[in-house]
Design a protein around this nucleic acid. Structure first.
Lengths: 129, 129
DNA sequence: ATTTTACTTGACCTTTACGTAAGAGATATG
DNA sequence: CATATCTCTTACGTAAAGGTCAAGTAAAAT
């Protein structure tokens, strides 16, 4: 009666290197749609659930916040396998994210300059004494 | 009896473009030593206080966290004018901070690559259909 | 002197992404 | 069956850097 493929939360967490809290949290904020439950209420995750979770983790790795993902939750409904609809929107998001990253890099670079300059000025003060 | 130079918190905040809460907060966490008070308890800030606050804001601008500043609070005791003692330590900090920034930049750069790659793979999937 | 600002402390609120604990029920194993 | 090991929900805690009241004084302006 139990699909070989269905997994409980602890096992899934261990597999993906995250905690059960994280999985429940993603469900809590609606990133992870309610999974099936066993008779007693225990969650079981099927292949699609796992795919979706992996996808979320991938996006997170790329620096996309859970909040940003939520705004797009409608678009990457992996359950529905409508990869056609999800991808254009996702690419849009990724592009936006790339420019954000570029901006951050630019900011850090100028910050670096400033720090170096400041450092030099202090060194000067030290040497002039 | 009142030094022309002494300023109250609202005025000081306005001058530096921050809020009074921020100034009180810095005092709260010990970044800003207790200032003099008027008879009624109103804080007044003298030149040194203002210098110190400006210094803190400068460091903050450079991306140094309040926490990092606290660890160094002993070293940049501007009140004591011991610019000799503060600078070497400060330079040390700045150097450390520069390398932190470099690391962040490197991370963001590789993140950028990953995102672009991911984007490309998705584009491929789209085009192959 | 009186009104209008400004200042005081205290304490709770915000965001993000979970951590952690409590108490109770479910599942797996010997 | 008993026990060990999940899993469940609820709900408060955390870090950073202040924001935002609220009630009560003090200082400044008229």
């Amino acid at each position: 009666m139990n699909d070989k493929k269905n997994v409980q939360i602890g096992e899934l967490a261990k597999r993906l290197g995250i905690t059960t809290r994280t999985i429940r949290y993603y469900e809590e904020i609606g990133l992870m749609g309610p999974p099936e439950r066993l008779g007693g209420g225990t969650r079981t995750f099927n292949k699609d659930d796992i795919l979706r979770l992996k996808f979320i983790l991938k996006l997170k790795e790329l620096g996309i916040s859970l909040n940003e993902m939520q705004e797009l939750a409608e678009h990457f409904d992996i359950h529905k396998q409508d990869f056609d609809t999800i991808t254009p929107k996702l690419i849009e998001i990724l592009d936006l994210h790339i420019s954000k990253v570029d901006e951050k890099i630019a900011n850090l670079s100028s910050l670096r300059h400033e720090i170096v300059d400041y450092r030099l000025r202090i060194m000067d003060i030290l040497n002039k004494k």
